[in-house]
Simulated assay, not measured.
Amino acid sequence: MADFFQAVVLGLIQGLTEFLPISSSAHLRIYPDLFGWGDPGAAFTAVIQIGTELAVLLYFWKDIWRIAVAWLRSLVQPEFRGHRDALMGWYIIVGSVPIVVLGIALKDVIEKDFRSLWIIGTTLIVLGVVLGLADRFGRNEKEIGRIGLRDALLMGLAQALALIPGVSRSGATLSMGRFLGYEREAATRFAFLLAIPAVIGAGVFELKDIPGETNPYGWGPTIVATVVSFVVGYAVIAWLLRWVTTRSYAPFVAYRVVLGVVVLVLVGTGVLAS
């Protein structure tokens, strides 16, 4: 029963933090250690993220369906190749390439070295400051319809930084989007769409390691955590999209910096093992 209780808590953490620019993978590494549960592992983290991405699929199903249909039609009907939705499909594919390539190439490093709390505490602080600067100086002049190939690739490269826990997939993508001049809502929506192939792909890729040497949870707790993350994640999407239309990312920046400092102090004083 203890495993299932922990799974519910970890699913709740995943659902609350996946879409906020505060790094869900960092939270799934930090808080289990604080609770004395140990590191749940990269495989468990990747698989339960499928739940939050299913929430994205459900929330944006009309947009995703429209983009998918237009993209598929563009493959066989030349008149659709310049269609805005067809191009968006290509932009999502192109933007997903960096994280897929680097995720496969750096798999061993990601699952071991990158999970050090020294690295996580540092990236929470550094990327928090970057997000704050991007939000402060970014221009609100571009809507999501103005995304082009260059911007999609740049945001995809930024997303790839999230292979390091503590960076935050949404935080890195939002930061790049804001630096490129996109409105908060536009950058947030594209970050949601861009994450779908990478997160679902990574989760499916890691299914073979449930359970495994680096994953203390079996199939039952993993499925429970995934379901919880789906339900909570859906609610967070709706809340965040309303938030960014009128408010800045400042509270998330402050939270990242404070959490990063606390983690480094706890590791430095021996309270947590790095």
Rank of each mutant, 00 (worst) to 15 (best):
V130Q: 04
I50S: 04
V69G: 06
R84D: 12
F192Q: 00
A202T: 00
V258D: 10
G138I: 07
Y59E: 04
I48F: 06
W239R: 12
L207R: 01
P165C: 01
M88E: 00
V94W: 11
V224N: 02
E53P: 00
A43D: 06
A7M: 02
G15D: 11
P251D: 09
A26K: 09
E141C: 01
E185F: 10
D113K: 14
S25W: 00
I110F: 04
S25Q: 04
L20M: 15
P165K: 00
L163E: 08
K142M: 09
A160T: 10
R256L: 07
N215C: 08
G268S: 11
G95A: 10
L153D: 07
G171S: 11
P40I: 13
D209I: 00
R84Q: 14
A55I: 11
L117G: 00
V224L: 15
M1G: 15
A134K: 05
G270N: 04
G121A: 08
R189Y: 05
L207V: 01
Q6Y: 13
V47A: 05
R73F: 07
P251K: 08
I196R: 01
I223E: 12
T246H: 15
L240S: 07
A172R: 02
L54N: 01
D3E: 15
P32T: 12
R189M: 01
K107F: 12
W61F: 15
V97S: 03
V100S: 10
E143Q: 13
P251S: 12
R84E: 15
V94H: 06
V228S: 01
A2G: 14
I210Y: 02
L241Y: 01
A26H: 08
I223A: 15
A225M: 11
R73L: 14
S24M: 10
M155W: 08
V236Q: 04
L157Y: 05
T45H: 00
V258M: 13
E143M: 07
A162C: 05
M155L: 09
S23C: 13
A26V: 12
A160F: 06
H27I: 06
I196M: 09
A7Q: 02
P197C: 03
F179Q: 04
G132T: 03
V232F: 02
G11N: 12
L75R: 14
G89E: 09
T173W: 06
V224K: 02
T245H: 13
S248V: 03
R178S: 07
V8K: 08
V204S: 04
V204H: 02
G156V: 06
W37R: 03
I196Y: 03
H27A: 05
P78Q: 07
W219Y: 15
H27K: 05
A162L: 03
Q77D: 15
S74W: 14
I48N: 04
T222G: 11
L127A: 01
L10C: 05
L127D: 00
R256G: 05
M1K: 14
T122L: 14
T122Q: 04
L207G: 01
L10T: 03
W243R: 05
S116I: 00
V263D: 07
V129E: 09
L154D: 03
G11S: 12
I147N: 02
E206W: 01
I50Q: 02
F179D: 04
R73A: 11
I64M: 13
A86V: 10
E213G: 14
Q77M: 13
D63F: 03
A202S: 13
